[in-house]
Design a protein around this nucleic acid. Structure first.
Lengths: 227, 227
DNA sequence: TAGATTGTTAATCGATTAACAATC
DNA sequence: TAGATTGTTAATCGATTAACAATC
């Protein structure tokens, strides 16, 4: 009784973020006809710790063989299944600017469980144009179409000042998850899954670390003393 | 004396990733002429804990006034400085596909310390064309120009199979930091700053959570027992 | 068998959250 | 002053890393 099923607690987010790396690596190794792979080799190739890799892989339910490692195909299938990348989720994208158009055009999402089926924009000049064979629809059709087509994922690539209102509209129409690219914090009901893909967050880490690195190179002399 | 300078230990990454959110919020509040803001209000607006907000803000060195909160302008300036967003870092982008072009066209990076000064591509058909007033240059000029212009940041938007080779070339030419959008794990010397902005990582979290949510809605009955 | 690799239990580490004195 | 808010020290929580028995 004291031991609770791991799945009820959910997979730790750091683990979830490493899974696409495992998938990518295994796909590349698959073409080189390797049948088994050890946690140590995976760890070496991805600059991780082999214990951490085993912990992560354990979550998928795959069992390795001592001395052999993990059966590659079985492991890959299990990892893909963990992210639900063996199913395609239909998604609507709102905001057909340059980033939105880039996402519409990206072929790689098909192997990541994402299928962008329609795109919307408030700009009448964009409505009716084609981006990678997908017609841009007027945003006032959004609510109705989410309801009719039972769409679960909304991709938000509108400008910051439209982000909250558009997200509210998606939620109102019954969407379950929002992939947010707008540089804004969305305030939404807690049952809505929001995954932020804000580039500025990532960029902030980079610029901070770079400044620190360049500063320490300019002034490498440790000119203070500890006691 | 046993207390070591916080900056030597570096700012925790979770804190760094929240700073852009603080900056964004404060910029919006600034236009409404607010002079002081408390950690509680910030926390409420961003769905954070006020203690966590205070801890984060303390890292910038800004001191708040009891009962008043933090002076908005001072705090904003300090946050921007922490990320070095008060300076512009020149960057080269390699891979002028749809995502690369979208990044070249994005005006918002200027307020995040990033200035994309040139873009490169290996495709001769793209070379010479203009994307948002920036001419696409042949990739064989990359090394030489990084050296000549002392570029510190490389933005990698090439296909997966070119990512490692292009990154190696950047490093060889003396780049300090790489912002990696390619869905690949880069193996680089440890002194190189690599910040991954891989959309598939973010997408994996979303598709996993969505699958779990939809499953639990379909089968909400907890039909297993622990002894 | 010996050695490599797994999977689990325990220890460590770091971030978040709680408690509370200081201060305007 | 009383009350709100800060900043710091301590407790909690969760992820990473270490230790080690099990197994092929």
């Amino acid at each position: 009784m004291e031991k609770i099923d791991k799945n009820l607690l959910g997979i730790p987010e750091p683990t979830l973020r490493r899974i696409p790396k495992y998938i990518d690596l295994l796909k590349r190794l698959k073409s080189s006809k390797i049948k088994y792979i050890s946690s140590k080799i995976i760890a070496d190739k991805l600059n991780l710790d082999s214990i951490q890799v085993r912990k992560d892989l354990a979550i998928t339910g795959t069992i390795g063989k001592p001395k052999m490692g993990f059966e590659l195909d079985e492991l890959l299938t299990a990892l893909i299944h963990t992210l639900n990348w063996d199913n395609l989720n239909d998604a609507f994208l709102v905001g057909a600017g340059s980033l939105g158009s880039a996402l519409i055009g990206y072929k790689g999402f098909a192997s990541c469980g994402l299928n962008i089926v329609a795109a919307f924009d408030s700009d009448v000049k964009k409505v009716g144009t084609l981006v990678n064979e997908i017609e841009i629809l007027p945003v006032d059709k959004l609510t109705d179409m989410i309801k009719r087509m039972h769409i679960n994922i909304g991709i938000l690539t509108v400008p910051e000042d439209e982000a909250q209102a558009t997200a509210d509209e998606m939620v109102e129409a019954g969407i379950s998850a929002i992939w947010n690219f707008a540089p804004a914090h969305l305030k939404l009901p807690k049952e809505i899954i929001v995954e932020n893909a804000q580039l500025t967050q990532s960029l902030g880490v980079l610029t901070h670390k770079l400044a620190k690195k360049l500063n320490s190179e300019i002034a490498p002399i440790n000119n203070f003393k500890k006691f």
